[in-house]
Computed example of a mutant assay.
Amino acid sequence: MGRCDTCPYGVISAAFLKIALLTYATKPRGSVIHTLELAEALHRLGHQPCVFALDKTGQGFGRSLLSKVALVPASPCDQGIEALIQQRIGEFVRYFQQHRDRYDIYHAQDCLSANALAQLRDQGQLPHFVRTVHHIEAFQSPYLQDCQEKSIRLPDRCLCVSDYWQKELEQRYGIQPFRVFNGVDWQRFSAPPENVSDLKAELGLTGQPIYLTVGGIEPRKNSLRLLQAFAQVLPHLPQAQLVIAGGATLFDYEDYRADFFAAVAELGIDARSLILPGIIPDAQLPALYHAAAGFVFPSLKEGWGLVVLEAIAAGLPVLTANQTPFTEYLSPQTACLVDPNDTDQIAQGMLNLAQPQTVNAWVTASRSLRDRYRWQDTAQLHLTLYTQLLFPQ
């Protein structure tokens, strides 16, 4: 073994590792993208990662990957969210019981896969496992809360992606998680793709300016306040469009979505102004960023906010919440930071994103993030932590 002078945790292994990375879906959510990019970076460093993903469609991730991928069949379930989670955990468990290929590290990226690995460890199928906590949900269901508790307390090593969640885990659970960080594929998102015009035509993106957010309609994304703020913007910028892309989640947020669409009708926002394309194929995501004029993400709670870094890599000015974890890597010089609970502030921030001089200053300053958040550095830090688990001193 050698030593990594730039890694805060010390020793890393020179030999390659076989690493199983588990994620709950193939659709592009934050923790899913984190899993894929970590796997790609580990592969480039000479290791052998394999991404195990629950897949309802059999279509995979919609992008070519260097690392191995194993799609875990996931069947429909119409018996409610608790039954769905229980079924998904069971699908992971049964898959690994049937496929006996061994890995040096088993790493869960979510609550669901962590519960599956805990069961497999108890059965003697694997010696230990790691879990990354991206954020903690406020579940009302005792069953879901118990799943979350187990997924945090039972891993042999717990990681998290921000200072905020590191402190939360210490205070709530009395554990000391290891702090890792996210990155962004700067090259992939910075170059304008050839299909920008085609995508704009396909989605009806003719507005000026075009505001983009990624993550779908749900409470923690603050979708309703964003919509209300956009309604305040329209009298000043009547040609503006708001694009809310995404929406792949285990939870349907039916009541919240009903309130959202009731507000659309009440505010008189028409179909030309509000664009809801649903899940955007991962291959088209860079083009979507380049089709927009500004990225608006006043989220109430995030693990990190990978889409913010992707937007910055694409050269967009960003509006986001003036709170952690965003303020761990952003400042008033690099982004428009607003109180996510204040609709008026969000609206004024959106108007500021239409001011060229202000926008240019944010975009220029945010370029400094390029050298600070790279997936290769993230992967190297993970390797250090993996090796410490495998070879404790």
Rank of each mutant, 00 (worst) to 15 (best):
H134G: 02
S141V: 10
W375A: 00
Q166R: 12
S141P: 07
R157E: 10
G90V: 02
A354C: 07
P192G: 13
H134C: 02
D342F: 14
A263Y: 12
E40I: 03
A14R: 12
N352D: 13
Q228W: 02
C7A: 03
S162P: 08
F96P: 00
P235W: 05
A321W: 00
I85Y: 11
P277Y: 09
V32C: 00
Q109G: 07
P238Y: 04
W362T: 00
L288V: 08
L237N: 02
P73Y: 06
A291M: 07
T249R: 10
R3I: 15
L45G: 07
S190E: 14
E170P: 01
E194D: 15
D78S: 11
E170T: 15
L285P: 02
L17G: 04
L126I: 14
V130K: 02
A231G: 05
D339A: 10
Q333F: 04
I136Q: 10
S64Y: 06
E149R: 14
T57C: 11
D344G: 14
L71P: 04
I81W: 12
V184Y: 07
I19N: 01
L21H: 12
L159K: 05
L285N: 01
V308Q: 09
T364D: 12
E302L: 02
A231Q: 03
V93W: 01
D259Y: 05
K27Y: 07
L309C: 09
N195A: 10
W304N: 09
K27S: 09
A287R: 00
Y106C: 14
V93K: 01
S190G: 06
S273A: 05
A293G: 14
G58C: 05
L285F: 01
D156N: 13
S366K: 05
V51T: 06
Y9C: 02
T6R: 15
L369V: 04
N115R: 03
C158A: 13
S368W: 14
G303V: 09
R153H: 07
Q48C: 15
Y95C: 03
V296K: 03
M1H: 11
V133A: 04
H107M: 01
P392G: 08
R188A: 13
L306H: 00
L71R: 07
R225D: 03
T26M: 00
L319P: 00
A201G: 13
G303C: 11
P356H: 12
H382Q: 08
T378N: 11
F189E: 09
A25S: 13
G124F: 12
G246D: 03
Q239D: 10
Y253H: 13
K56Q: 08
H99K: 07
S75Y: 05
C4R: 15
I279V: 13
S75A: 11
I81Y: 11
V363G: 04
D371C: 14
S223L: 02
L330C: 13
E149C: 07
I105F: 01
V93E: 09
P340K: 08
Q176D: 15
R153I: 05
D163V: 12
A287N: 02
I81Q: 15
T334S: 10
A321N: 02
A263R: 11
S197H: 12
R44L: 01
G62I: 00
